[in-house]
C-alpha cells in the first residue's frame, strides 16, 4: 500500500480497513497536495454518464463503467491493453493509490473497483459514503477537468478466476451459498412493471435456487456509508446464514449492485473466496435449462442440475 492507510474506529473493525477512506481523510489528503505527484488518484464512477460534468471532487478524473470498462463488442470487460491505456490516460500508474467514489452509495464505484481488481491493481479503495456524502457535508466541488500527466501502466492480463464467476461456475457452485442482491420483486419473479411495458431484460423471472435475498442497499446506511461490522454480520452471517470460510457467489442483474455486496463480503467481513457473477440475471434469466426458483422461498437444488 503506497499511501498511508486511514485509522479510525469504524474501519478498524473491518477485515481490510485499508480498503476504505473517509471523506475527512480524502479532503485532508487533497488539501495536503496528495494529488500532485500521481501517488494518489481520485476516480469518480457514476451511473449517470454526465454527473461528473455537473461537478466533482477537485482533481478527480472520470471513469465511466460502461464506455471505459466494458468491451464495446463482446459482453466482457476491456483487455489488458485497453485497461493500461485507460489507466495511463487518467494519470494512474501500477503503484498508484486509487480512491474511487460515485453516486448511489458507491454502487458503480464498487463496480469500477471490482474491475480494477480483475487487473490486480493492488491499492484501490472506496470513499465511504461516496459522492452524496461529500456533497451533503458541503465539501468543495469543481467542474474543472484535470489533465493529469500520463501514468505508467503495464499491460496486465486480467485474472478473472478469483473474484469473477461465469454461468458454468455458478452451476458448479450450486449447493454452496449464493446472495441475490436484487429487489424483492426481482427475487420472487413478480417484477412490477407498467402495463404495455414488457420487461425486456430477461425472459424468465425468479432467482437461482438456494440464493439468499439480501438487497444490496441494506449494506449501506442512510448516508451511503457501509454499515458497521456488527450490522453487516447480522445481515450476512445472521440473516443470509453465511458462515466463516464459506465460498460465496453474489449476483444481481448485470453485476453492478452485486459488486457493492462483493466488496462488503470480501473486504469488510473478510470472506476469502467471494465471486461476483456479472452475467447475473440478464444471463441466467435468459439461459436455456438452468434451474430457477420463483417466489420468496430460497428453494432447493434440483437433482441433476449440476
Amino acid at each position: 500500500m503506497s499511501y498511508p492507510v486511514e485509522q479510525n474506529e469504524k474501519f478498524t473493525a473491518y477485515a481490510n480497513p485499508e480498503r476504505l477512506v473517509s471523506t475527512e481523510w480524502l479532503a485532508a489528503a487533497i488539501e495536503g497536495g496528495a494529488l500532485n505527484d500521481g501517488k494518489l488518484v481520485v476516480v469518480e464512477s457514476d451511473e449517470d454518464v454526465l454527473l461528473y460534468e455537473t461537478g466533482h471532487i477537485p482533481g478527480a478524473v472520470k471513469v465511466d463503467w460502461h464506455t471505459d470498462l466494458n468491451d464495446e463488442v463482446t459482453r466482457d470487460y476491456v483487455d489488458g491493453n485497453a485497461f493500461a491505456a485507460l489507466a495511463a490516460a487518467k494519470g494512474i500508474s501500477r503503484d498508484t493509490t486509487v480512491v474511487i467514489y460515485g453516486d448511489k452509495s458507491n454502487w458503480w464505484a464498487a463496480y469500477a473497483l471490482w474491475v480494477f481488481t480483475l487487473f490486480g491493481h493492488e491499492d484501490v479503495r472506496l470513499l465511504d459514503g461516496g459522492r452524496d456524502k461529500w456533497i451533503a457535508e458541503g465539501r468543495e466541488l469543481t467542474t474543472d477537468v484535470p489533465a493529469p500527466a500520463a501514468g505508467d501502466y503495464p499491460v496486465v492480463e486480467r485474472n478473472d478466476a478469483p473474484i469473477r464467476a461465469f454461468k458454468d461456475d455458478v452451476l458448479a457452485h450450486l449447493g454452496k451459498p449464493l446472495i441475490d442482491v436484487r429487489s424483492p420483486e426481482e427475487y420472487t419473479g413478480q417484477r412490477t412493471h407498467m402495463p404495455a411495458y414488457p420487461e425486456e431484460g430477461a425472459l424468465r423471472g425468479g432467482h437461482i435456487p438456494t440464493a439468499a435475498s439480501i438487497p444490496w442497499a441494506r449494506a449501506a446506511a442512510e448516508d451511503g456509508t457501509y454499515r458497521t461490522r456488527p450490522e453487516l454480520e447480522a445481515l450476512y452471517l445472521g440473516e443470509a446464514g453465511l458462515t466463516e470460510g464459506d465460498d460465496v457467489v453474489a449476483y444481481c442483474r448485470i453485476g453492478e449492485r452485486s459488486s457493492h455486496t462483493w466488496f462488503a463480503l470480501k473486504y469488510l467481513l473478510g470472506f476469502e473466496t467471494v465471486r461476483n457473477y456479472d452475467g447475473s440475471w440478464t444471463e441466467w434469466g435468459n439461459a436455456v435449462r438452468v434451474p430457477i426458483v420463483k417466489g420468496a422461498e430460497r428453494g432447493s437444488v434440483p437433482a441433476g442440475a449440476r
Binding site: 449517470d48 454518464v49 454526465l50 454527473l51 460534468e53 455537473t54 453516486d103
Partner: peptide, 9 residues
C-alpha cells in the same frame, strides 16, 4: 433531480 443530468437532458 439534478443528480440525473442524462435523464434531465
Amino acid at each position: 433531480p439534478p443528480e440525473a443530468p442524462t435523464t434531465r437532458g
